[in-house]
Nucleic acid binder design. Structure first.
Lengths: 209, 209
DNA sequence: CGCCTACTTGAAGGGCATCAAGCGAAGTGG
DNA sequence: CCACTTCGCTTGATGCCCTTCAAGTAGGCG
């Protein structure tokens, strides 16, 4: 179901530009899986974007989280971590503080996502997702709030569908409806600008977190 | 939205029968919320059954987990732990081993539940839930597998609906359809017997975990 | 230039929600 | 003790949100 781009790790000109780090780092091409490091229970995203996905035997996929720079994740059994763009990951040095706070955050995110999957409508789900991705991937220019927050939407429509428990078509329809309503803007499908954050948050149905 | 039974903690004849423990224990009547213990980040269920729930501003509820004896849970912000029967909970003494393994289990459960909410059909969800509750609440009589596993279904149809992202009516219809198909049996709504575990697991759609 | 992949858009259908009614057990008050 | 209420559950009829199916468009890369 997935056409994985063949990658020669660390060989492309693009990956070489990524931030250097210890010898256990992994540099990933788009659509490349993170290979589990038996020494590191948890890993951290240094740059790029990952999707944590889970599969049913018949191929149905559920993405449990989209992870951006600075965040920590773990790949246990039945969990595949896949890059959505050029990315680099490293074993997380788990000081207990970070472990506890990041673990708590991970759990809270999962609970919020369960609420989304179980009880929110399609529009609410997409609005929540857009705000979440903006928070993770929009450059932090809190000084100049003048400019509308803009960010690269690393997940494809298919990724969003598998994250939000919807279909590709519903994702596309909802995003374009948001565009027509002036909530967001995009010329290319992957470059999103938030035009009306208030209305988006209202549409997200509270608990945007 | 919730009619909570007024309880004088530890006063009823029934709660007094529960297993005694340290002074920080909480004894709960049915439908009573666990009050957050600021000293204890995580708590453990000694007996009974709890539901961890999350609410949208308009009242929609999502139960992220149903927790039985021996399991550990945490009540952070936006999370309410409610007893589904007479229960007792205690602060978890968090040896790092237990914390790590229980935390990992909690995360894995949440991911499996996200897969259920996002990608499984109603029948698959109910079958998965029945098997999960049987594993948690059926008396461990692995020696005598002769007898069909039977257990008390502490969550009501409404609880199950809010756990599985469905409605009361769909839960009822699906359970009765399982009964007609000979997968499960019940005379009273809350006393479930598993009659065909193999077929249930097949219906659950793999990854029963 | 042709193929492929991602995205978009319309039309039709289905799975589950909603609405509605009824049943039975437990609790309450007269 | 028995009407009366309440609550959880069941069952049927109808509706709708999202899926499914089906084209069609645009950008990227050989």
């Amino acid at each position: 179901m997935h056409m994985l781009a063949i990658a020669t790790p660390g060989a492309s000109p693009t990956t070489r530009r990524l931030r250097t780090a210890s010898k256990h780092n992994q540099f990933l091409e788009p659509r490349q899986a993170v290979s589990a490091d038996p020494l590191a229970e948890m890993m951290t995203v240094e740059s790029g974007c990952l999707a944590l996905s889970h599969y049913l035997p018949d191929g149905r996929r559920q993405i449990s989280d989209i992870v951006g720079p600075g965040r920590i994740f773990s790949i246990g059994a039945d969990c595949r971590a896949e890059s959505l763009t050029y990315s680099s990951v490293a074993p997380a040095d788990v000081s207990q503080d970070a472990y506890s706070s990041q673990g708590r955050m991970l759990l809270a995110r999962m609970q919020a996502h369960a609420l989304l999957l179980g009880r929110k409508t399609a529009a609410e789900r997409v609005a929540t997702a857009v705000l979440d991705l903006a928070r993770q991937f929009a450059p932090a220019e809190r000084a100049s709030r003048q400019t509308r927050p803009t960010f690269i939407l690393y997940p494809t429509r298919a990724d969003l569908a598998d994250w939000l428990g919807l279909t590709i078509e519903t994702i596309s329809r909802t995003l374009n409806s948001f565009k027509r309503m002036g909530l967001i803007g995009f010329d290319r499908p992957e470059r999103i600008t938030i035009l009306n954050q208030i209305a988006l948050e209202r549409t997200a149905g509270g608990h945007t977190a």
